[in-house]
Design a protein around this nucleic acid. Sequence first.
DNA 1: ATGAAATAATAAGCAGGCTTATAATGAGCG
DNA 2: CGCTCATTATAAGCCTGCTTATTATTTCAT
Lengths: 154, 154
Amino acid sequence: MSGMGESGKDSATEMSFALHSAARLLRRNFDRRARDHGLSDARWQVLWHLTREQGLKQTALAGRLEMAPISLARLLDKLQGEGLVERRPDPQDRRCFKIYPTDQVQPAMALLGDLAEETRNHALDGFTAAEIGQLQALLGRLRKNLIGEEIECD
Amino acid sequence: MSGMGESGKDSATEMSFALHSAARLLRRNFDRRARDHGLSDARWQVLWHLTREQGLKQTALAGRLEMAPISLARLLDKLQGEGLVERRPDPQDRRCFKIYPTDQVQPAMALLGDLAEETRNHALDGFTAAEIGQLQALLGRLRKNLIGEEIECD
DNA sequence: ATGAAATAATAAGCAGGCTTATAATGAGCG
DNA sequence: CGCTCATTATAAGCCTGCTTATTATTTCAT
């Protein structure tokens, strides 16, 4: 990246734009499908992580999601209000709660999994498995470069 | 993408997650740098497009940015309030305005360009030019697949 | 010419991310 | 013990995106 000319700078600028654009398009596509069911991409990501690691405390879950704990708190407020998650006090540490999905989550996850697959099939039309792996690898390196400066989580 | 097993589904799910995460990390990194100057990623993208194509009307500019016109409107309100852009009425069509950057924009762009370069240098540390091209190509194909369903703009 | 449909900008209100600041609890050290 | 400091969750308020609905204007068919 050192000593690249003007054209290199612009191509990297456009790559940044493409990255934001791709993420937004993907989210929007999924949200359109999920909206009729009262769900969204953000909620799905929370539930997806939560069904894989039950009983996480909020800071740890926020770490998995790479978002600020306070951003998660409001999401959980709503999910709890809809009966999708449960906050159980931790007897070992009265400051924190452990988060669990409720029974209602399983059918919702099945539905959302299908919707997510539709979105991905559409987005990745014409991609080989190798290309998907390549994309993920490149994104992973980019994330790793950036995450160094972020606060580490549990 | 058809007929992929469970592991393929999960890897594609994680790719989606990585995509959102990468975009968010990149934006956050830039915003941290720009905040002290009262600017942000979203504002920079508006100004960047605007200096390249002056006198666009709002719908066309929103199209370039791939965002809804109303989302742009409020951004422009603030940018106009800060004296960075100007809305000039179009004598040919009294419904619309043409948007121009003011003289204040040029120095701001120089500064933001440097900040953007810092962010990119950090994010793309260890990437070859070929890899950046590869990433952009993959993202471009993904976008093209998704944008078909979106409304086309000027 | 005139009335219907399309288009440009906006308003209102929601979603989901952030920073900064606070309250409650836990942990460590004198 | 008691004081300080770190950690957990939350509150308040901003930014930027969205959908849906409204207003003003243009365009076009009749």
